[in-house]
Amino acid sequence: MSRVPSPPPPAEMSSGPVAESWCYTQIKVVKFSYMWTINNFSFCREEMGEVIKSSTFSSGANDKLKWCLRVNPKGLDEESKDYLSLYLLLVSCPKSEVRAKFKFSILNAKGEETKAMESQRAYRFVQGKDWGFKKFIRRDFLLDEANGLLPDDKLTLFCEVSVVQDSVNISGQNTMNMVKVPECRLADELGGLWENSRFTDCCLCVAGQEFQAHKAILAARSPVFSAMFEHEMEESKKNRVEINDVEPEVFKEMMCFIYTGKAPNLDKMADDLLAAADKYALERLKVMCEDALCSNLSVENAAEILILADLHSADQLKTQAVDFINYHASDVLETSGWKSMVVSHPHLVAEAYRSLASAQCPFLGPPRKRLKQS
């Protein structure tokens, strides 16, 4: 649940008159999402009104509101027999009622949201009550392989729920002597030191190019640089560091992050930047690179990204790559990247197969709970 924001200063709310007192009302909304995959969808019983329910879910471990999704594969009634019906059901509720908006969509073979439908307002739910769409999607369109909505005969539904909580009022009075504290510009100011090479005390040599930097900042941000300058190493004695395995453009992006906490060109060089972040123990930059690479996972590059993640101990990226390969196994196994990995990294192939087997055979063990970014 997000923290209630402070109200904007009255002088910034309007260029008009300023009242002596004010009130700011925040209506709290808890948002969460749920993904439900139905394997072997074409084998569902086709009687009209037949119901399939998901397991229950909530916004978190401490949330007492429990929900589930309900599907009628062949419609709810005679009117909707040519459609799939989809509903959000409130299973248990400690209150007399709650209000919530919802959005349903289908994830296609690429994991993209399609055929989205959402409620136009927050509906009133009581325990045992459901709301949804009797005519969510035509069955003939859903079952047509050309539309790519049932890869490997799996129907994957994605649901986003927004639950309306209580409202909170914050009130106060205006004073004539309003003090406005300026925003912190530390990142910009440190970035200026790097860009202008002011007050530098060490030189970093990268592929024949020299960059002036500040030992204190490098040591504070990177345990690797800290070790170089702290001990009686040649880098500490000469205040000069030779860097041979990072390209200059990648190095500059890494230094921008060290000084400012930002990497504006990360998406263009996420793979190389991940390697640099791993070498210099820049954990936050490493996770930022993992996130960017996750966003660009595809059938063509899944094997290469899995190898990269394994090489640099990028655990979150590795998990996402394995899950992606499992979901698109029939396509990924035909790529040149996968065939190369079979020869060069057989242990990763074995890991992917083990994960695929456990996903398809849940009876082999208890269900695993899916539970950071600093």
Rank of each mutant, 00 (worst) to 15 (best):
S15G: 06
K279E: 03
D310S: 06
V322C: 10
D166C: 09
P264S: 04
D82C: 13
G60F: 12
I38K: 02
S21I: 03
N39V: 04
P367Q: 15
S197Q: 15
A219Y: 15
C159Y: 06
Y24M: 14
A11T: 10
C159D: 00
F104H: 14
M228G: 08
W338P: 00
D130M: 09
S336M: 13
E235Y: 10
R198C: 15
V164K: 02
M269R: 05
V179G: 06
V168C: 04
K134W: 01
D272K: 04
F158S: 12
P5D: 01
S226R: 14
K28F: 12
I27L: 04
P17E: 14
P8R: 03
T175M: 04
C202A: 10
V161T: 11
M1L: 00
S42N: 01
L157H: 02
A213T: 10
E283Q: 02
G337H: 05
S14I: 06
G192T: 08
D331S: 09
L86N: 13
E195C: 05
G132R: 02
P8K: 10
K369Y: 01
N62Y: 03
V91R: 04
V287D: 04
F125I: 00
E230T: 14
G75H: 08
M254I: 06
S298C: 12
E235F: 08
F41N: 08
K31L: 01
S340N: 11
N296H: 13
L84Q: 01
E290A: 08
A19Y: 06
P94H: 14
R139S: 05
S2D: 05
Y34E: 08
F158N: 07
S92T: 13
Y83H: 12
L364I: 14
E334Q: 07
C361Q: 14
M1P: 00
G172T: 01
L89K: 14
E160L: 05
S344Q: 14
R99L: 10
L84A: 09
V4M: 10
R121G: 07
N40A: 06
K135N: 13
V168Y: 06
W36C: 04
S14D: 13
S21N: 04
T319C: 06
S340I: 06
A329T: 07
M48R: 02
Q373D: 13
E351H: 06
P73M: 07
G365I: 14
W36N: 01
S6D: 10
F141W: 13
Y353G: 00
H347A: 12
N326P: 01
D315R: 10
N147Y: 15
P264L: 07
D63N: 06
I137R: 04
S33W: 15
A11K: 02
M176Q: 04
F363Q: 13
S15Q: 09
V342N: 08
V343G: 15
V342P: 04
H214Y: 03
D153S: 12
L317M: 12
S96D: 14
V163Q: 06
F199L: 15
D166F: 03
L143Y: 09
Q120D: 13
K101G: 11
L356A: 04
L293N: 15
R70T: 13
D331E: 13
Y353W: 08
K154D: 10
L193D: 04
R221M: 12
P367I: 05
V342A: 10
I258L: 04
Q360S: 13
G337D: 13
A187V: 05
R368Q: 12
N326Y: 07
R99H: 08
C23E: 02
V163G: 07
G128N: 11
F41M: 08
N40V: 03
V51T: 02
K74V: 15
I325W: 11
E20T: 06
S85A: 13
S96P: 11
E189A: 01
A359G: 08
Y353N: 00
R354I: 02
L65T: 11
K154H: 09
D63S: 07
I38A: 08
H312P: 01
I243M: 02
S355E: 08
A303S: 04
L143W: 13
D291H: 13
S344Y: 04
D77K: 10
K95R: 15
A227T: 05
S197A: 13
C205I: 13
F363M: 15
D144M: 10
T37L: 08
L285I: 02
Y327V: 11
Y24I: 10
W338Y: 05
T56E: 11
F133A: 11
E47S: 01
V161R: 00
L90V: 12
K215S: 09
K180E: 08
F125E: 01
P223A: 14
E290S: 02
V161P: 08
Q212P: 12
R99T: 15
K252N: 05
E189D: 04
P223R: 12
Q316A: 12
D166L: 10
C203M: 14
C205W: 09
L86R: 00
A213P: 07
W338K: 00
L143M: 05
S42P: 08
L293T: 11
L84H: 06
I217L: 02
I137D: 14
I38S: 01
E235Q: 06
T175P: 03
L84R: 00
P248M: 07
A329N: 05
C44K: 01
R99Q: 13
S336C: 04
S2A: 10
D188Y: 08
C23D: 00
S119F: 00
L107E: 09
E334F: 09
Q127K: 14
P73W: 06
S6V: 13
K237T: 05
Q120A: 13
G132K: 00
S344F: 08
W131A: 01
G111H: 09
S42H: 05
G132L: 00
D140C: 01
G261T: 08
V342G: 14
A302V: 02
E145F: 04
V342C: 13
L356N: 04
K103I: 13
V343R: 11
P17T: 07
I307W: 10
S197I: 15
L356P: 01
G128Y: 09
S171V: 04
L90P: 02
D310L: 05
A270L: 04
V342E: 02
D82L: 10
M341A: 15
V4L: 01
K115Q: 01
L306T: 02
R121W: 10
F41D: 08
P9M: 05
F225C: 15
N147S: 07
F251S: 03
E300N: 01
W338N: 00
C361E: 13
F225G: 00
M288K: 01
W22N: 00
K372C: 13
A275V: 07
W67N: 00
M233K: 14
K215H: 13
K103Y: 15
